[in-house]
């Protein structure tokens, strides 16, 4: 076993993660190599230094401070949909519509007619547009689409640079 192989196995060796054969190779190498022996000793001293670090205690009012602060925050509780209320709301809406139609305040057939008229106009517009499109080659349309895409990306990148970091931190960014 050479020094490189030995040093890359030192941690596993100390953790007892090596196979018996590998562990014997490492221990044999350590016995004969002063550089690796020194490295092993140094790593063990770092290990000991880290183990000896005295942990600090949180401020005595830690929990109290947090509980006081979250009392002023909106509750993270899930907002539940109360079905009877939701059903009542839908029913009441329809009842009002029916009542207004019966009193001729709301002319439902006129509304439906107007929606139909609008749909017809939209259909004509779409047909004109598709005929107009027939005059263009696919390549032209693709080029225009790409140009629009580039402009949109540029705008998004400019706006994003300003707002994304804030959005990221708001979303916690738990992923590294």
């Amino acid at each position: 076993m050479n020094c490189s192989a030995c040093s890359s196995r030192l941690a596993a060796y100390r953790d007892g993660d090596l196979s018996r054969a590998d562990a014997r190779l490492v221990s044999e190498h350590l016995a004969g190599c002063s550089a690796c022996k020194a490295l092993d000793a140094r790593m063990r001293r770092v290990d000991a230094a880290l183990t000896r670090i005295v942990l600090i205690e949180p401020a005595p009012d830690f929990t109290a401070t947090i509980m006081a602060k979250i009392a002023a925050m909106p509750s993270p509780a899930r907002r539940r949909v109360v079905w009877p209320w939701f059903a009542a709301y839908v029913f009441a809406t329809w009842a009002v519509v029916a009542m207004l139609s019966a009193l001729h305040v709301l002319n439902l057939s006129a509304i439906v007619g107007r929606i139909g008229g609008f749909a017809g106009q939209a259909g004509v517009a779409l047909e004109t547009l598709s005929r107009l499109g027939g005059h263009f080659h696919v390549a032209d349309v693709a080029a225009i689409a790409v140009a629009i895409e580039i402009i949109l990306l540029a705008v998004a990148a400019t706006a994003g640079r300003k707002y994304l970091p804030r959005l990221g931190s708001a979303l916690l960014g738990a992923r590294s």
């Binding site: 947090i66 509980m67 979250i70 509750s75 993270p76 509780a77 899930r78």
Partner: peptide
């Protein structure tokens, strides 16, 4: 906490 019991935090 998610059911609304803030003190459980």
């Amino acid at each position: 906490v998610l059911k609304g019991d803030t003190q459980a935090f």
